[in-house]
Amino acid sequence: MTTMVTAAQAPETDEAPTRRGKNPRTKKSIVLTLLTGIVLIYSLLPLVWLLINSTKTQDGLFTSFGLWFDDGPFAFFSNIADTLTYNDGIFLRWLGNTLLYVVIGAGGATFLAVLAGYGLAKFDFVGKKAVFAIVIGAVAVPGTALAVPTFLMFAKLGLTNTPWAVIIPSLITPFGLYLMWTFAAEAVPTEILEAARVDGSGEFRTFFRIVLPLLAPGIVTVLLFSMVATWNNYFLPLIMLRDPDWYPLTLGLNAWNAQAATAGGEAIFNLVITGSLLTIIPLLAAFLLLQRYWQSGLAAGSVKE
């Protein structure tokens, strides 16, 4: 398994780790922009649908063409208001839950992945080779099929139907571990660590003082991925949670979507759509914020050397 790591650690390890800044002289290409634009449209089209349809009433949804606005009332703001107040404002409760799961789950996942990735990249220890083999091997077993065993175990631990049942499994991101591993191998020069050791700095002190800042761009990437994964986590809460008060947004939206499909159920597709839109927005904002940090992180890396 270590062969892969070697490959990923790539040829430039011996190079001076200077990074290329943006070259201002590069000519912009319209053709390339247009070609990439096709992928952009492909990515955006369904989201445009979401945006357009969030302006329609429940009835308007069924009587108008999906990719254009409805002749009827412009219901965008009333939809938002309804989404936030429906069922005594349960949506906000779900939003709060989701934030809780993301902050603790994704934050913790990133922290664990950074620690472990750094440990794997910069230390030689007993059982190291087995770690990656075990991680990738375990990831290969279909998670949905493990749901029942996991549920039964958590039930025995008394964790089901509590936030912990959602948070604890989110703490593991094998992919994040891998990213941090390769990133730490490249971004943290071994000499710095040796120098710190010579100065008598403890390993954890070195980690927090010197290594963490160097890892910043990688941390942001892992944080972003695990945030999205936790934010959109659906299957696990579905199995673990019974009390709608602990639902994350995805489960709540699905419950709204499903509630039409029963005797006497009220179809609220307009709220499902508006709710979906509202669900995406915080992620988008987080991404934009993190991206800025991410770029400056990269740039900082290049300045430093």
């Binding site: 472990a116 440990g119 794997l120 230390f123 030689d124 220890f125 007993v126 660590l193």
Partner: peptide, 15 residues
């Protein structure tokens, strides 16, 4: 490529 330090358990404190 990792540092060829004496094999130890230090890494486990991170992993």
């Amino acid at each position: 490529l990792a540092v060829r330090r004496r094999r130890s358990w230090t890494g486990w404190r991170f992993v």
